Amino acid sequence: MEQVIHLIIVTGLLIWILYNISNWLIKIILIIGAIALGSLAIAVIPAGVIWSFRQVWQQIRLDKSQRILAIFLPIVTVLAGISLGLFWQLGFTNLWIPIAICFNTLPLLTILVYRPIQRLSLIRQYRESERDLISP
């Protein structure tokens, strides 16, 4: 009977030890994974910014008529992202943050929405004028 009690105690102790070891291993793996993801984010975000500015620089060199837009769009996008991030973290605690959001996102929305609509309108006008030029 004593052997059975000792066996139960030893088995329980082993289960408890394995449970704690597996708990710590899971925590260690999660911490290492979080560090790896953080390091990846720290590497990917600046690489993305550098790549976008490189693309802008190539656009500036290729199309000289879009030079102002190619410089202005990434700057306004970064400023809008910063102000939205500050707003997300701080909320309405500071009046300047919503004002900055307005001043940064309005030009961005104008560039992203108005210019394609204007281009489609010009294409539509051209096609309508093209119909008048064709005689049966």
Rank of each mutant, 00 (worst) to 15 (best):
W96S: 06
Q59M: 14
G48L: 14
I101A: 03
I50F: 14
F92P: 03
V76G: 02
L73H: 13
T77I: 09
G85Y: 00
F72N: 12
F53K: 08
T105H: 02
W96R: 07
V56R: 08
I60P: 05
L69N: 13
L106N: 07
A47L: 14
A80F: 07
P107Q: 03
L112E: 09
L73V: 09
C102I: 12
L69Q: 10
D63R: 11
Q89R: 10
L95D: 12
P107T: 00
L62H: 15
I50Y: 09
Q58H: 15
W51H: 11
C102M: 14
V78D: 02
I97C: 00
I97F: 00
K64M: 08
L73P: 07
G81D: 04
T110Y: 13
Q59E: 15
G48D: 06
R54M: 10
L69P: 02
D63A: 07
T77D: 04
Q89L: 12
W51K: 15
I99A: 01
S52H: 08
A100T: 12
S83E: 02
L108W: 04
T93A: 15
P74S: 05
I97M: 00
V49R: 07
R61N: 11
I82F: 08
K64F: 06
F53M: 08
Q59W: 08
L86D: 04
S52D: 14
I71G: 06
F72Q: 13
F53S: 04
P98H: 04
N94F: 05
I75V: 12
L106I: 15
L112G: 12
I99R: 00
L69C: 01
L79G: 02
V78G: 05
W88I: 06
I111Q: 09
D63Y: 12
F92T: 07
F92R: 11
F72Y: 12
I60F: 05
F53H: 09
A100D: 03
R54D: 13
Q89W: 05
L95G: 05
P107I: 00
Q55P: 03
